[in-house]
Structure formats: C-alpha cells, structure tokens
Design a protein around this nucleic acid. Structure first.
Length: 456
RNA sequence: GGACGGAUAGCCAAGCGGUUAGGCAGUGGACUGCAACUCCAUUUAGACGAGUUCGACUCUCGUUCCGUCCUCCA
C-alpha cells in the first residue's frame, strides 16, 4: 500500500499524512446550518468528506469522526451583523427555531443516507454545548483576547500575530477598504457572544456571565472539537468558503486559548457551480429531492461528484449529470454480468490505491476502473476488484440489480407475434409490432437467445 | 478596489517539461433482415500575448475572463 498524501490548505501543499497518534485519526467536519434544505453544492462537500473518511479507513486508521450541526448563531452576514439565520428561517417556515432545526437536521441526514455517506461517530449540536462555548469565551477573556461592545463580546484579532495565516489574509489590504460600522475595533475582529436585543425576546437565548444572548458562529467549532477530539487533532474539513472567515476565526480562538492551530491538516471541498456562479446565489436552488423528482438516482449524483477532483470547482449541467448516469449504468451492468467475486487483481488494486492516496484522485481512480472494465481479466477477478474499489466509491455495486419491469400481457403478446413474424421474415409486420410496443413505452430487443423487453 | 484560487476538445473532467487520462456525445466498423444492446477503432484540446528551454498544455511575466472572501458604489 502506498503512503497517503493529502493537500493541506494551511501549508498550501500536498503533505504526507501522519497521524498524531499511531493508527488513529481525529476528523472534524463543519456540518450544516439547519435553516433550510442542503442543496447539491453543499452535498458535494459531504461527499468529499465521506471519500476522505473511507480513504482513511482503507489505510487502516481508526477514525473518530465528528460533525457539528449549527442550530444557532449563524448570522445572515458574516460580518457579525444582520439577523440570525435561524430566526429568519423560523419566520419563513412558521416553525419555531427549535422545530425547524430538528426538521432540517433530519432532512440533511436523509440526504446523507441516500448518497451513501457515512454518518459521523458523533453529531454535536451547538445548542447542546452552550456551557462549553461560554467556558471557552471565559478562557479567552482571562487571557486578554476579548473586549465588550454594546452588542456583544468580541475577539481582538490584533492580539494574535498569526491571525489570517490559513487564508494568507492581507490585513493591510482588508483595512484599506474596511467599513467602520459598529463598535468593532478592527476589521478582522468577530463576535464570540452576542447580546439579545433589549426590546426583543429571542427564541434561542441563554444566560451568560456577560448577559443574556447567544454564541457567535465560530466558537462552537473550537469548543466542540476540543471536547470531542482534543485541542489539536488530525484533520479539519469544510467548504472552501470557510477558509477566509470561519476557519480563520476558529484557528484564532484555539490558538489564543490553547496555543495550537486546532488541526494538523485543513482540507476544503470546492464549490459546485451552476451557470458559473456559486449555487446558493443562483436563482436555482437544487436539492437532492429535485434530482429524484426528475428521475435521477442519488447514486448518479455521487458518481458525478467522483468524476472531478474535490479541490476544483465543478460545473453542474443537466447534460453532464445525465452523461454520468449513462456511464454509471454501464458500470453497474458490467459488474453485475461478471457474477460472483473471485480473487483480487493486485496490479489494479495497486494502481487504484495509488490514485486514492494521491490526495484522493477519484477521477484517476475512475479511469483505472474503466481500464478494468475493458480488460480481458477473469470476470470473477474483475468483480472482486471492483467491489474493493467500491469501498471508496460507495456506489453500492454489490447490490445492483437490473431493473425488473412488469411486462403487461398485451406487450408480451406483441413480442410473441413479432417473433412469429420474424420467423416468417415478414419484416414490415415485425417492425410495425415493435413500433407499437415502443409507442406504449416498451423496447423490444433481439438477443442471441431470443427477444427481451425493456421499459423505455 | 484588495487577498486567494482557477481557465484543457461538442459537454463534464485528469495527469504530465518530451511518451493514450477517463466518461458522455459524435464518426467508422463488427453483430442485426433493419434497428437497439454490446464489442472494436477513432476525429476534435489546452483563454490571449510575451519569455525561459533542444522542446511548454505543464515553468515565469503580463492581459482578459471566471470563482471565493472582504470592501466600495448603487
């Protein structure tokens, strides 16, 4: 087995992965803010994280996988102004913020299941960890990294010389165009705790040493990852949009409080683009449900994501999705036709592992797979090998069954009549019968053994 | 306006300083009464302009465009 190499955003290079503790990996992935359905762009990131999880397992690591659910405190603007997304979503849906969080958490988990994405070992909700977050802020306060304004407790980013290293932020550049809005002292300062408005009862608020309110968005990840994985763990993942703000601030908090940069590796999934724009800003908000309504199997979307490297922005088009649906169907059918699995093909396994361990190069791994499909190896060996590949792909190749269609009696009769016509070499009648069946939605095909009927 | 990334054939999308990525579509062929399915083969690249090099899709610089984040204006 080749060594595992992964791209680390912090170092901006591919590095050999070495666990902090032999044989074990602590993995933290930023989960959803549950105020709406996940769109397929969000889901691409979770597929990437699942591939990483599977690759770590393939390399023999015991993985402790933690994912948070942000159910409070994520403002509509990342500049720590604007309304809480949860409160906004609550007004939109008519549910309470608590009901809505539960509703969208379940919708999210259903999407993960349908995409064959492994669940984390630990789910952690921000609202279940208010105490930990308050303690974290208290520690930052004690160490002199906070200041208070009329609307909350803020992190003083100037106290940290390394601030912004992850994103290679140019602080001077940011300052040049900085908006002096509230009492925030510096562009890169951010809220740790926000006070409830004096004239308003929020649905989600808690007492704290500084007054009633709710935690800032970034503190939950520092506090909860520390609780479940420790102050310095192996890998932290999220979407590329988290690099400049969210992850930068998580690192700042943890460096200030614990003196570590939180994670050894920082990995980011890149956006799915729709019409050359980030999906969430597009007029079209595509969910997995929408794909299913259009007759597209969730597995097709998963396969579609495998065709691009996780670190490149990928263009979504219906035609490319459908093209990959055709490819996946051929892959499934080929594997199905190979029958029972036999012995692994070492050469293909080695090539496959090399692709996966080269920073999760799934497109290359698929190329190896198509080599395997077109090769002249023993079917049983090919089957065993592709099933091993599927430990990473997660396409559930083992359970694929060709679609069994109920053939109506009249269609059966058409096919039988056509067989007779063909025997008599009555081609016009034969073609007419086939066309009639086609008009009813059934395709009659000739095989060596006779005819077979497929649904259109 | 700033920082950070990107630009590959009809579409999606990889690796690589010289030697086939892959998939889908298309084209040619085998099979078929004709098709379909399947199989075999195969055309079309590297945003633009310079530079480095024996050789650049790959490295450097500039330009244009796209994305993310920040900001400004409206």
């Amino acid at each position: 087995m080749s060594e595992l190499y992964l791209f680390d955003t912090y170092e901006r290079q591919v590095r050999q992965f070495q666990p902090l503790e032999a044989g074990k990996v602590g993995l933290y992935c930023c989960g959803p803010t549950v105020y709406n359905y996940a769109h397929i762009g969000n889901l691409r990131t979770y597929i990437f994280e699942d591939l990483l999880y599977r690759a770590l397992k393939m390399n023999g690591y015991e993985v402790n996988f933690v994912m948070n659910i942000t159910d409070v405190g994520h403002l509509t603007s990342d500049a720590d102004s604007g309304e809480d997304k949860m409160e906004v979503g609550s007004k939109r849906t008519g549910m309470t913020a608590w009901q809505m969080a539960d509703f969208y958490t379940q919708a999210f988990q259903k999407d993960l299941k349908r995409l064959n994405i492994n669940f984390p070992d630990t789910w952690c909700r921000a609202t279940d960890h208010i105490k930990e977050q308050i303690e974290f802020i208290e520690d930052l306060e004690k160490k002199g990294f906070t200041y208070q304004t009329s609307d909350g407790i803020y992190f003083d980013s100037r106290k940290l010389s390394s601030y912004g290293q992850l994103a290679r932020l140019d602080i001077e550049g940011l300052m040049a165009g900085a908006r002096v809005d509230n009492e925030r002292q510096h562009v890169t300062d951010f809220a740790l705790w926000k006070f409830s408005p004096a004239d308003e009862q929020r649905q989600m608020e808690w007492p704290s040493p500084w007054g009633t309110g709710f935690p800032g968005w970034h503190i939950e990840c520092s506090a909860m990852s520390a609780k479940y994985l420790g102050d310095y763990f192996d890998i932290h993942c999220g979407g590329e949009d988290h690099i400049p703000i969210h992850h930068t601030n998580e690192i700042a908090q943890t460096e200030a409080s614990r003196g570590t940069r939180l994670a050894n590796f920082w990995m980011h999934g890149y956006f799915l683009q729709l019409d050359n724009a980030k999906m969430s800003k597009s007029a079209v908000f595509l969910t997995l449900d929408r794909l299913i309504e259009k007759g597209i199997d969730p597995g097709v979307y998963r396969y579609f994501c495998l065709t691009a490297h996780y670190r490149t922005q990928m263009s979504f088009t219906w035609s490319s999705l459908e093209a990959n649906g055709v490819a996946l169907k051929r892959l499934y059918q080929a594997a199905y036709d190979w029958g029972a699995p036999g012995t692994l093909l070492d050469e293909y396994m080695a090539r496959f592992n090399a692709c996966i361990n080269d920073d999760l190069n799934l497109p290359r791994a698929l190329a190896v797979t198509w080599d395997l499909i077109r090769s002249n190896e023993e079917p049983s060996a090919k089957k065993a090998t592709i099933l091993a590949f599927d430990q990473i792909f997660g396409l559930d190749i083992a359970n694929y069954q060709p679609q069994v269609v109920e053939i109506p009696a009249d269609i059966q009769k058409l096919a039988e009549a056509r067989a007779v016509a063909r025997k008599e070499k009555n081609w016009p009648l034969s073609d007419e019968l086939r066309d009639t069946a086609l008009a009813a939605g059934y395709i009659i095909e000739d095989t060596r053994e006779g005819w077979q009927i497929k649904k259109q």
